[in-house]
Amino acid sequence: MDIRDDSLQKIARRHWYNFVDPVTKLLLALFLTMLSFDFTPLYFEISLVLFSLTLLLLSRLSKATVNAVSFCLFLIVTMVVIQGLFYSHNVHPLFSVMTITFYREGFLYAATMSARILIIIFAIGFFMGTTTVSENAKYLESIGMPYKLVYLLMSVCYILPQIQQNLSKIQFVERARGINPQKTVMQKVRSILPILIPLIIKTFDQSINRSITLQLRGFDRPERTLATPKYPYFKAKFSHYLLSIVILLLIGCKLWQIISRFL
């Protein structure tokens, strides 16, 4: 039995999204984003939101994604309220509550913006929820990216969970040493301030240690065996070309829309 490649035991548990390679997933996220910027009818935007939401729901929903989405919903509600009230092109009243009037233009504008944000969040959430740092690293290396560059890219991704881990550890201890109740948002923010410096120093220290040991472990040696991708992917190259071309067309299209306004 192969102890590293877990294909033998896990083949039954492999999901459809494991057959899509990481780069295709990222390109897909970019493609959906560009679509939402190019075509603005609200029904089209909503169907894009639903499509990306379906992608997300069909994948593994992580707690982090749910948190990110709920935070965005909070922002979106604020935005809808503000634009509905104060958008500069507001003309047609939509409805009134007591003496406060919401306007159609602002509401529509905010709805379009919200749809775009949701599409980006859902599509990126799909990418994050269905790939692991190691799968991404292996895939990028296998398609010819130098390992040093792969490592740099990945350590940027790695630093956030690292900070989060350190933060929760330091916060637990801060709670143990102090009487700060940390119940309201303000109290929470204030409790983070004094520990920011140790947090940064600790994370920085770990990063330096990691980069030292990686050099000791010889990660940039010329004789390094190329990693093999974690899963066999379905038509990876074809998807990359297709999505790249469509994305370029969409970008061109958007640019033309902007330029033609000045002509």
Binding site: A176, R177, P198, K202
Partner: peptide, 9 residues
């Protein structure tokens, strides 16, 4: 705590 470096700030 066991790890002193995370309790000093």
């Amino acid at each position: 705590f066991q790890d002193p470096s995370s309790q000093l700030f």
